[in-house]
């Protein structure tokens, strides 16, 4: 059951800065649901996502004094979740190197799907579909489409060129459409 979306008040943050456990738990309950969703979209599996969520909250509580009140607190916490999850992805990639495959081959000669194909998918199915994308594609697609980052910000965040971000996004889109189409055709009678 997702908690209602309401801005985090300053009193709760002040109590968290003082280290009050009850306040920290209250903030955790308000943020954990959606932040786990963020981590699940980037991390390769749920265990990695839970570890990323754990590190996210540790960072949130230990660096609350760095929140300047510029913008909603949820957005600040979400950015921490994104960077933490991205770091988890990087660590996972270093620990489990996979043989390189040309992602372009994955999207070649596949039919494209209409955006309405997304409507027929449950969120969990859509997330599972995203997880079939190569990590680089999935990351750029999530950052651009869901988080709303610009290509310049993505480039700075990932340490890649801005053109690389654009090309990876285009390929990710093409691959996602093809997989959506494949899944859509499989569901047709």
């Amino acid at each position: 059951m997702p908690p209602p979306i309401a801005p985090v008040d300053e009193a709760l943050l002040a109590a968290c800065r003082r280290g009050e456990s009850a306040a920290q738990y209250q903030l955790y309950q308000r943020l954990a649901y959606r932040l786990l969703g963020v981590c699940l979209r980037y991390c390769p599996n749920r265990a990695e996502a839970e570890d990323a969520l754990q590190n996210t909250f540790v960072k949130i509580f230990t660096r609350l004094d760095q929140y300047r009140g510029q913008g909603p607190f949820e957005a600040w916490a979400r950015r921490i979740a994104v960077t933490t999850a991205l770091h988890a992805v990087e660590q996972h990639r270093l620990r489990h190197p996979t043989p390189g495959t040309d992602p372009d081959d994955l999207a070649a000669d596949l039919p494209s799907a209409e955006p309405s194909a997304l409507e027929s998918l449950a969120a969990e199915d859509l997330l599972a579909l995203l997880n079939t994308l190569p990590p680089g594609y999935r990351t750029v697609l999530n950052l651009y489409a869901v988080e709303g980052y610009s290509h310049q910000e993505i480039a700075e965040l990932l340490g890649i060129a801005e053109g690389t971000s654009k090309s990876q996004l285009a390929r990710a889109r093409r691959l996602l459409e093809s997989r959506l189409a494949t899944q859509h055709y499989q569901q047709l009678p």
Binding site: A32, Y33, L130, A145
Partner: peptide
């Protein structure tokens, strides 16, 4: 972009109980 907007609508507030 319709695809990206649809992705955001479906996944922006997506979450799971920890």
């Amino acid at each position: 972009d319709d695809l990206y907007d649809a992705l955001r609508d479906r996944l922006a507030d997506y979450g799971q109980e920890p």
